[in-house]
Protein backbone atom coordinates (compact mmCIF):
# COMPACT_ATOMS: atom_id res chain seq x y z
CA UNK A 1 0.00 0.00 0.00
CA UNK A 2 1.39 3.38 -1.02
CA UNK A 3 1.93 6.05 1.57
CA UNK A 4 -0.50 8.95 1.58
CA UNK A 5 2.33 11.43 1.14
CA UNK A 6 5.91 10.78 0.15
CA UNK A 7 8.48 13.31 -1.04
CA UNK A 8 11.98 12.68 -2.35
CA UNK A 9 14.64 15.34 -2.01
CA UNK A 10 12.17 18.20 -2.12
CA UNK A 11 14.10 21.41 -2.63
CA UNK A 12 13.22 25.10 -2.81
CA UNK A 13 15.27 28.24 -2.57
CA UNK A 14 14.19 31.88 -2.51
CA UNK A 15 17.08 33.91 -3.86
CA UNK A 16 20.18 32.95 -1.88
CA UNK A 17 18.15 31.43 0.92
CA UNK A 18 17.42 27.71 0.90
CA UNK A 19 13.96 27.34 2.43
CA UNK A 20 13.62 23.60 1.96
CA UNK A 21 16.82 21.65 1.39
CA UNK A 22 15.99 18.11 0.36
CA UNK A 23 12.98 17.02 2.39
CA UNK A 24 11.95 13.36 2.46
CA UNK A 25 8.55 13.55 4.08
CA UNK A 26 6.58 10.35 4.65
CA UNK A 27 3.04 10.11 5.93
CA UNK A 28 1.37 6.67 6.02
CA UNK A 29 -2.19 6.31 4.84
CA UNK A 30 -4.88 6.85 7.45
CA UNK A 31 -2.63 8.61 9.91
CA UNK A 32 -3.18 11.82 11.78
CA UNK A 33 0.19 13.41 11.15
CA UNK A 34 1.74 16.46 12.76
CA UNK A 35 4.43 18.51 11.06
CA UNK A 36 6.30 20.41 13.73
CA UNK A 37 9.30 22.72 13.67
CA UNK A 38 10.45 26.15 14.75
CA UNK A 39 9.59 29.23 12.71
CA UNK A 40 11.44 29.27 9.41
CA UNK A 41 11.93 25.50 9.41
CA UNK A 42 10.23 25.26 6.00
CA UNK A 43 6.90 23.78 7.06
CA UNK A 44 4.73 26.20 5.09
CA UNK A 45 6.99 26.03 2.02
CA UNK A 46 6.86 22.23 2.11
CA UNK A 47 3.08 22.13 2.45
CA UNK A 48 2.68 24.69 -0.36
CA UNK A 49 4.78 22.56 -2.69
CA UNK A 50 3.04 19.33 -1.69
CA UNK A 51 -0.36 20.85 -2.44
CA UNK A 52 0.69 22.22 -5.82
CA UNK A 53 0.60 25.88 -4.86
CA UNK A 54 4.35 26.49 -5.12
CA UNK A 55 6.63 25.04 -7.77
CA UNK A 56 9.57 23.13 -6.25
CA UNK A 57 13.09 23.67 -7.57
CA UNK A 58 13.82 19.99 -7.27
CA UNK A 59 12.57 16.68 -5.94
CA UNK A 60 9.45 14.58 -6.35
CA UNK A 61 6.15 14.55 -4.50
CA UNK A 62 3.74 11.63 -4.51
CA UNK A 63 0.29 11.61 -3.00
CA UNK A 64 -1.33 8.18 -2.95
CA UNK A 65 1.44 7.09 -5.31
CA UNK A 66 0.76 9.77 -7.94
CA UNK A 67 3.10 12.61 -8.81
CA UNK A 68 1.57 15.97 -7.85
CA UNK A 69 3.24 17.98 -10.58
CA UNK A 70 3.05 15.39 -13.37
CA UNK A 71 -0.49 14.20 -12.76
CA UNK A 72 -2.38 17.10 -11.20
CA UNK A 73 -5.81 15.93 -12.37
CA UNK A 74 -5.76 12.78 -10.26
CA UNK A 75 -4.08 14.40 -7.27
CA UNK A 76 -6.00 17.65 -6.96
CA UNK A 77 -9.39 15.94 -6.84
CA UNK A 78 -8.21 13.97 -3.82
CA UNK A 79 -6.65 16.60 -1.60
CA UNK A 80 -8.09 19.30 0.61
CA UNK A 81 -6.07 22.32 1.64
CA UNK A 82 -6.23 24.97 4.33
CA UNK A 83 -3.24 27.23 3.67
CA UNK A 84 -1.61 29.57 6.15
CA UNK A 85 -2.79 33.11 6.61
CA UNK A 86 -6.52 32.45 6.24
CA UNK A 87 -6.65 33.67 2.67
CA UNK A 88 -10.26 33.27 1.66
CA UNK A 89 -12.66 35.03 -0.68
CA UNK A 90 -13.36 37.79 1.79
CA UNK A 91 -16.39 39.31 0.13
CA UNK A 92 -18.42 36.15 -0.04
CA UNK A 93 -20.51 35.01 2.90
CA UNK A 94 -19.47 31.77 4.58
CA UNK A 95 -22.24 29.93 2.82
CA UNK A 96 -21.43 31.44 -0.58
CA UNK A 97 -17.79 30.47 -0.08
CA UNK A 98 -18.76 26.82 0.37
CA UNK A 99 -21.09 26.93 -2.63
CA UNK A 100 -18.33 28.44 -4.74
CA UNK A 101 -15.74 25.90 -3.59
CA UNK A 102 -18.09 23.00 -4.22
CA UNK A 103 -19.06 24.12 -7.68
CA UNK A 104 -15.43 24.80 -8.48
CA UNK A 105 -14.84 21.11 -7.87
CA UNK A 106 -17.69 20.13 -10.17
CA UNK A 107 -20.00 18.78 -7.47
CA UNK A 108 -23.69 19.01 -8.47
CA UNK A 109 -25.43 22.00 -6.92
CA UNK A 110 -27.99 20.15 -4.77
CA UNK A 111 -25.22 17.97 -3.36
CA UNK A 112 -23.17 21.08 -2.57
CA UNK A 113 -26.15 22.58 -0.76
CA UNK A 114 -26.67 19.43 1.29
CA UNK A 115 -23.01 19.13 2.29
CA UNK A 116 -22.66 22.86 2.98
CA UNK A 117 -25.69 22.80 5.30
CA UNK A 118 -24.27 19.90 7.25
CA UNK A 119 -20.79 21.36 7.46
CA UNK A 120 -22.11 24.72 8.62
CA UNK A 121 -24.12 22.97 11.33
CA UNK A 122 -21.21 20.83 12.52
CA UNK A 123 -18.87 23.81 12.52
CA UNK A 124 -21.40 25.83 14.50
CA UNK A 125 -21.52 28.53 11.82
CA UNK A 126 -25.25 28.46 11.06
CA UNK A 127 -25.84 31.88 12.59
CA UNK A 128 -22.92 33.45 10.76
CA UNK A 129 -23.45 31.71 7.44
CA UNK A 130 -24.77 34.82 5.70
CA UNK A 131 -22.12 37.18 7.02
CA UNK A 132 -19.16 38.16 4.88
CA UNK A 133 -15.99 36.21 5.60
CA UNK A 134 -14.12 39.51 5.99
CA UNK A 135 -16.10 40.08 9.20
CA UNK A 136 -15.37 36.61 10.65
CA UNK A 137 -13.17 36.06 13.70
CA UNK A 138 -10.02 33.95 13.43
CA UNK A 139 -11.72 30.84 14.79
CA UNK A 140 -14.67 31.23 12.41
CA UNK A 141 -12.32 31.68 9.47
CA UNK A 142 -10.40 28.52 10.34
CA UNK A 143 -13.68 26.63 10.63
CA UNK A 144 -15.10 27.87 7.33
CA UNK A 145 -11.72 27.18 5.70
CA UNK A 146 -11.75 23.63 7.01
CA UNK A 147 -15.34 23.21 5.84
CA UNK A 148 -14.32 24.37 2.35
CA UNK A 149 -11.39 21.95 2.40
CA UNK A 150 -13.61 19.01 3.41
CA UNK A 151 -16.51 19.72 1.07
CA UNK A 152 -15.33 17.50 -1.78
CA UNK A 153 -14.48 14.63 0.56
CA UNK A 154 -10.73 14.51 -0.12
CA UNK A 155 -8.58 11.51 0.81
CA UNK A 156 -5.75 13.61 2.20
CA UNK A 157 -6.14 16.88 4.05
CA UNK A 158 -3.33 19.43 4.45
CA UNK A 159 -3.75 22.08 7.13
CA UNK A 160 -1.21 24.81 7.79
CA UNK A 161 -1.43 25.99 11.40
CA UNK A 162 -5.14 25.19 11.75
CA UNK A 163 -5.16 25.95 15.47
CA UNK A 164 -3.24 29.20 15.50
CA UNK A 165 -5.24 31.96 17.14
CA UNK A 166 -8.29 29.74 17.62
CA UNK A 167 -10.26 29.86 20.85
CA UNK A 168 -10.67 26.61 22.83
CA UNK A 169 -14.30 26.11 21.81
CA UNK A 170 -13.58 26.39 18.09
CA UNK A 171 -10.42 24.30 18.53
CA UNK A 172 -12.51 21.57 20.08
CA UNK A 173 -14.91 21.63 17.14
CA UNK A 174 -12.00 21.44 14.70
CA UNK A 175 -10.38 18.48 16.48
CA UNK A 176 -13.66 16.58 16.72
CA UNK A 177 -14.26 16.96 13.00
CA UNK A 178 -10.70 15.93 12.16
CA UNK A 179 -10.89 12.89 14.45
CA UNK A 180 -14.04 11.67 12.75
CA UNK A 181 -12.43 12.27 9.39
CA UNK A 182 -9.30 10.20 10.12
CA UNK A 183 -11.35 7.46 11.79
CA UNK A 184 -12.83 6.76 8.35
CA UNK A 185 -9.37 5.99 6.93
CA UNK A 186 -8.51 9.39 5.48
CA UNK A 187 -5.22 11.15 6.19
CA UNK A 188 -4.62 14.50 7.88
CA UNK A 189 -1.32 16.36 7.75
CA UNK A 190 -1.15 19.51 9.78
CA UNK A 191 1.61 21.83 10.88
CA UNK A 192 1.67 23.32 14.34
CA UNK A 193 3.79 24.92 17.02
CA UNK A 194 1.67 23.56 19.84
CA UNK A 195 3.36 20.37 21.02
CA UNK A 196 0.64 19.42 23.50
CA UNK A 197 -1.91 19.41 20.74
CA UNK A 198 0.25 17.36 18.40
CA UNK A 199 0.93 14.90 21.21
CA UNK A 200 -2.76 14.59 21.98
CA UNK A 201 -4.02 14.24 18.42
CA UNK A 202 -1.35 12.66 16.27
CA UNK A 203 -0.16 9.14 15.79
CA UNK A 204 2.61 10.21 13.40
CA UNK A 205 4.96 13.12 13.64
CA UNK A 206 7.58 14.71 11.37
CA UNK A 207 10.00 17.18 12.88
CA UNK A 208 11.51 19.81 10.60
CA UNK A 209 14.42 22.10 11.31
CA UNK A 210 16.43 24.32 8.99
CA UNK A 211 14.69 23.09 5.86
CA UNK A 212 15.17 19.38 6.62
CA UNK A 213 13.20 16.59 8.24
CA UNK A 214 15.27 15.72 11.31
CA UNK A 215 13.02 12.99 12.66
CA UNK A 216 9.82 11.26 11.70
CA UNK A 217 7.84 8.23 12.61
CA UNK A 218 5.11 7.00 14.94
CA UNK A 219 4.86 9.48 17.76
CA UNK A 220 6.02 7.05 20.46
CA UNK A 221 9.19 6.28 18.52
CA UNK A 222 10.03 9.95 18.16
CA UNK A 223 9.28 10.65 21.81
CA UNK A 224 11.13 7.66 23.26
CA UNK A 225 9.59 8.07 26.67
CA UNK A 226 10.05 11.84 26.86
CA UNK A 227 7.35 14.40 26.37
CA UNK A 228 7.12 15.53 22.75
CA UNK A 229 8.21 18.99 23.80
CA UNK A 230 11.46 17.68 25.31
CA UNK A 231 12.08 15.46 22.35
CA UNK A 232 11.49 18.40 20.03
CA UNK A 233 13.86 20.71 21.88
CA UNK A 234 16.56 18.00 21.80
CA UNK A 235 16.05 17.42 18.09
CA UNK A 236 16.22 21.06 17.01
CA UNK A 237 19.01 21.82 19.49
CA UNK A 238 18.07 24.26 22.22
CA UNK A 239 19.77 27.57 21.54
CA UNK A 240 21.11 28.71 24.89
CA UNK A 241 19.41 27.66 28.12
CA UNK A 242 18.68 31.17 29.29
CA UNK A 243 21.28 31.01 32.10
CA UNK A 244 23.97 33.18 30.51
CA UNK A 245 23.68 36.96 30.39
CA UNK A 246 20.52 38.81 31.36
CA UNK A 247 21.88 39.26 34.87
CA UNK A 248 20.15 42.62 35.04
CA UNK A 249 16.75 41.12 34.32
CA UNK A 250 14.64 41.10 37.44
CA UNK A 251 17.39 42.78 39.46
CA UNK A 252 16.26 45.79 41.52
CA UNK A 253 16.56 48.92 39.38
Amino acid sequence: MADAVRTHGLFKRFGPQVAVGGVDLVVPKGSFAGLVGPNGAGKTTTLSMVTGLLRPDGGRIEIDGRDVWADPVAVKANIGVLPEGLRLFERLSGRELLMYGGQLRGIPLDEVVRRADELLRVMDLVEAQDKLVVDYSTGMRKKIGLAAALLHNPRVLFLDEPFEGVDPVSANTLTEVLRRYTASGSTVVFSSHVMDLVERLCDWVSVMNGGLVVAQGPIDEVRRGRSLNEAFLDLVGVRGNGEDGLSWLGAPA
Binding site: P72, K76, R87, L88, E90, Y100
Partner: peptide, 15 residues
Protein backbone atom coordinates in the same frame (compact mmCIF):
# COMPACT_ATOMS: atom_id res chain seq x y z
CA UNK B 1 -8.96 41.29 -7.31
CA UNK B 2 -9.03 37.65 -6.17
CA UNK B 3 -5.45 38.12 -5.03
CA UNK B 4 -4.41 35.85 -2.21
CA UNK B 5 -7.64 33.89 -2.29
CA UNK B 6 -6.89 32.61 -5.78
CA UNK B 7 -5.34 29.50 -4.19
CA UNK B 8 -8.85 28.09 -3.94
CA UNK B 9 -8.97 28.00 -7.71
CA UNK B 10 -5.37 26.80 -7.89
CA UNK B 11 -6.01 23.69 -5.80
CA UNK B 12 -9.12 22.85 -7.79
CA UNK B 13 -7.89 23.49 -11.34
CA UNK B 14 -5.83 20.86 -13.02
CA UNK B 15 -6.35 21.33 -16.76
Amino acid sequence: IDGRSLWMNAVAFST
